[in-house]
Design a protein around this nucleic acid. Structure first.
Lengths: 99, 99
DNA sequence: CGTATCATATCGAGCACCGATATCGACTTC
DNA sequence: GAAGTCGATATCGGTGCTCGATATGATACG
């Protein structure tokens, strides 16, 4: 039940970080674990690729600490979506939290 | 993408309203439409029953405006979950919105 | 080389969502 | 009181997402 909330937020979380700098799949898994959730690789990697296909992210290969990593960054389309989504989140939050 | 956020919130939204008074499936569909989303009956009704099975909601039959309706109300377990979920939402929101 | 390591990718199973359709009960009309 | 209408609720097959285990692939090290 609570988990579904997180899964819903996941894409926004990705966009948020990807709009501030380049991110990797492993980083996002770490980041989500910080919030107390285990998101499996089978969830995060397909998500990133879907988001790239949607034109929300763009990626390039790099090597870091001897490992080949794919770095994702938000596209302008992704940032626009993030803004619209934030608006929606504020609305939903104020409904459930505020009042 | 944005839709998934709403779907994640849906359960909380239900709990929120169901903790303030009795709700029906039709009411929740209306309520979600207010936020600009169409959630189909095939989504909301199974959700309500799952939540009842989980012990988050309890229901009774009634008749309103000549129609037989099932009225749901949050259980104490449901309200506890709502509180914990709100905490989580605040955390996720401040991460994505604030900063 | 050969191997260890770790990020990324894939796979089968299970479950949630969709929207179209069915069911079901209460009111209305005759 | 039987038939018809209306709207809320329930169900169903198809599709897509998530899981976690496993595979792939590139790099560094000995």
């Amino acid at each position: 039940m609570i988990r579904r909330v997180l899964l819903g937020f996941m894409g926004l979380h990705v966009l948020h970080h990807a709009s501030k700098g380049e991110i990797t799949g492993a980083f996002m898994m770490e980041e989500l674990k910080r919030h107390g959730y285990n998101v499996s690789p089978g969830t995060i990697y397909p998500l990133l690729r879907r988001m790239e296909e949607m034109g929300l992210l763009e990626s390039r290969w790099d090597v870091r600490k001897g490992k080949r990593v794919r770095l994702y960054r938000a596209t302008s389309k992704g940032e626009e979506l993030l803004e619209r989504a934030k608006e929606k989140v504020r609305e939903l939050c104020s409904e459930v939290l505020g009042e």
